[in-house]
């Protein structure tokens, strides 16, 4: 099974790094979409079937947290797994994000091993959820 993936990050470099890390981690990717902020990410989510969202927190226009709140308010998007990829160092904020429904948190710099483990964990849960 190949996953349709959306990467939401204002840095084109980091989007490229995540794409490359997905390749190295041998994660099967179907369609790969990119967005430079939460608002652009929501537009992609409304037009396409996405299996996993990788999102940064700190972005202009709409942050990753605001995007997740909008997704939670949308019946069609609330169950789409979101994995935060960020430099965030506050455990309090990570716990808040988990409460908001974020499925996993990867602290940058990102390694292929971590990415593979997190995707396996999240998509295992996702399949069991019947989505």
């Amino acid at each position: 099974m190949a996953f349709n993936i959306l990467i939401v990050d204002d840095s084109k470099t980091i989007r490229s790094v995540i794409k490359k890390t997905l390749e190295i981690a041998e994660i099967p990717v179907g369609e790969l979409y990119e967005a430079e902020n939460g608002q652009a990410g929501l537009a992609v989510l409304q037009e396409n079937w996405i299996d996993i969202v990788f999102a940064d927190i700190n972005m202009p226009v709409m942050t990753g947290i605001e995007m997740i709140e909008k997704m939670n308010a949308d019946n069609l998007l609330e169950k789409t797994p979101v994995i935060i990829v960020s430099t965030e160092g506050s455990q309090t904020r990570v716990e808040e994000l988990i409460k908001k429904g974020v499925r996993a948190f990867i602290r940058k710099p990102i390694s292929p091993e971590t990415l593979r483990n997190v995707v396996n964990e999240v998509m295992g849960d996702y399949d069991e959820g019947g989505n």
Binding site: S11, I14, S86, T87, G89, R107, K108
Partner: peptide, 10 residues
């Protein structure tokens, strides 16, 4: 920018 972002985050 990414180096700075990561430095600040850590």
């Amino acid at each position: 920018k990414e180096v700075l972002n990561t430095i600040c985050g850590r």
